[in-house]
Amino acid sequence: MRDIASEFAGWIGRCVTVEDEISLPAVRRMAAMLDLDPLEFHRGSAIPPHWYSMFFTQNARRSQIGHDGHPKKGEFLPPIPLPRRMFVGRQVSFPGVLRVGDEASKRSEIAGIEQKQGRSGTLVFLKVLHTISVGGQPAVTEQQEVVYRDAPAADAKPANAAATPVPASAAWQAEYEMDPVLVFRYSALTWNGHRIHYDADYARREEGYPGCVMNGALTVHLVVEEALKRAAGRRLAGLSARLVKPLFVGGQLKIAGRDAEGSTLEAWAGDEQGALAASCTLRFEGAS
């Protein structure tokens, strides 16, 4: 078996820095997408900590976009020779605050490459460290994990492996329709052109899914939004999130969680059949 991780080990340590402004129009669009009042945000307003993810987009030129809608590999991200690429998890800390109007920078570094063999073939996990700073002071630190996967076999059917059930002991719950407008608006905000989120023919024929795929980062975002409604106003100090299985546009997203215990709150997302899709742990400041 080809040792892809060793082949690309020289990419570990590669860095890139991107600058962006925490702009008022972007923040108000995010608020509108979440059915919040956009006019509650003004220049100087602190944004919810987890909203950092809609900034520092990859502004690849049209000629730099690959067949899948992602920027082509080989610039910052290594050209790992597996065609499918998806976000699978993150660990984040919020040592500072981002405010509307801040001029911020994001430094990203390739931190690790690991190869595994899964039911669907070769998997290569890429870890990337991100630090978002304002005035030289860190506001967000993140370790993000992305997986590269083999193309599906020509005769492959949609994956239907034994699902992990959602936890049984939920104290609260909420539901969202995974409608195409919601997914489109989030993809537009984050400048995400991955075709699995809007091109059903591509998703079926080339990536082996039954239809358009819910944006995993959006799933995590909605879980965190619902959890924070139950956090009694405490400041979010950090979170970890893991995607377990894909969800699909047109279905129901079921979010639930447990009441906060000490400094943490557990929340998760599942599909209509009760299969776990994502899990999150939120960590708060000032808890006894």
Rank of each mutant, 00 (worst) to 15 (best):
F76K: 09
P79I: 02
L82E: 11
L82W: 15
R85G: 01
R85I: 02
M86R: 13
F87C: 03
G89E: 03
Q91F: 07
Q91Y: 05
Q91M: 13
V92R: 00
V92G: 00
V92Y: 00
S93E: 15
F94D: 02
G96S: 12
L98E: 01
L98N: 06
R99D: 09
R99V: 03
V100H: 03
G101R: 04
K106M: 07
E109D: 03
A111V: 07
A111W: 04
A111T: 05
G112N: 14
G112A: 14
I113K: 10
E114T: 14
Q115A: 07
Q115T: 04
Q117S: 15
T122N: 08
F125M: 10
F125N: 06
F125H: 08
L126P: 01
V128K: 06
H130N: 09
V134K: 08
V134H: 10
A139N: 12
T141R: 04
E142K: 00
E142I: 05
Q144W: 08
E145K: 13
V147K: 10
V147P: 07
Y148V: 01
Y148P: 00
R149M: 14
A151D: 03
A151P: 02
P152A: 11
A154I: 10
A154R: 15
A156L: 10
K157V: 06
P158R: 01
A159F: 08
A161R: 06
A163Y: 02
T164M: 09
T164Q: 11
T164W: 04
P165Y: 02
P165F: 00
P165L: 00
P167H: 13
S169N: 14
A171T: 10
A171Q: 12
W172A: 03
Q173M: 05
E175N: 08
Y176E: 14
E177G: 14
E177W: 08
V181R: 04
F184E: 00
F184A: 02
F184C: 03
R185V: 06
R185T: 07
R185L: 12
R185C: 05
Y186M: 04
Y186E: 03
S187E: 11
A188M: 08
L189R: 05
T190A: 05
T190G: 00
W191A: 14
R195S: 01
I196H: 06
H197I: 11
H197D: 03
Y198D: 03
Y198Q: 02
D199R: 11
D199I: 08
A200L: 07
A200T: 02
D201I: 08
Y202S: 04
A203N: 01
R204Q: 12
R205N: 15
R205G: 06
E206H: 13
E206A: 09
E207Q: 14
E207K: 14
G208W: 05
G208Q: 05
P210V: 07
G211P: 09
M214Q: 04
M214F: 15
M214A: 14
N215T: 08
N215I: 07
G216D: 01
A217N: 10
A217Q: 14
A217T: 09
L218F: 13
T219E: 13
T219L: 11
V220E: 12
L222A: 01
